[in-house]
Amino acid sequence: MYAFEYHRPSSSKEALDLAAKKSEGKFLAGGQSLVQAMKLRLSSPSDLIDLGSVSELKNLKVEGNTVLVGAMVRHAEVAASPAVQKAIPALAALAGMIGDRQVRHMGTIGGSLANSDPAADYPAAVLGLGATISTHKRKIEADKFFKGLYETALEPGELITQVSFPAPKRAAYMKFKNPASRFALVGVFVADFGGNVRVAVTGAGACAFRQPDMEKALAAKFAPESVANIKVKSDGLNNDLHASPEYRAHLITVMAKRAVEAALK
């Protein structure tokens, strides 16, 4: 790991002031992606602004039909929250599938989204549920948030504060894991808002993306057979040792079908 300067602000304001001064600095949330990248010397921020003491980012609550997850809420908290389990069980289940137990105890939603790993799980939920990402200065719709490989709509120094998820009628997430890393080789989040259906895919492209043809078919009829025969184009999908674009395309269909089945259960 390269050397850096460490800061521990106790409020968002303090964190933002620091970020404004340290242009090569980075916010540190749970560290489960950033510290890893730094250990391998793939990332070398001049400064780390640790958000661990910023308590206003740690709220998790359900207000009416909306689940509000503070940027610093850990995956394990979302997974174990009875309120989330009741409001959007698929979101709690997804949080419980991220990484492993130890990672879930540290990793946060804000960190995950800001990093936008192409194989992370949360982006599928954010996009699949049409969540809104609040930063210290604006609200960003999910559809406008993910821009590419490790690339988001966030501006330098912009801090995610909260993510709000509208509760669907039913939803489910199906993840086919990369056997080695346990990240999503392909993950599909399906949400039915009563006529309006969203299907979001992670792991398969540069960043999470929606699957409009499946959404249309499911909006007409929310049933596994509606998607079972939809052939996904493999163009532009990720290609690595574990999965070719063709295999990923195939898995998108399989996982979408299984997600619909699970949502109907």
Binding site: L28, Q32, V35, Q102, V103, H105, M106
Partner: peptide
């Protein structure tokens, strides 16, 4: 009280 990977955080965390 919760299991974490001590290789994945800096001591200051």
């Amino acid at each position: 009280g919760r299991a974490i990977k001590s290789c994945s955080i800096v001591a200051m965390q």
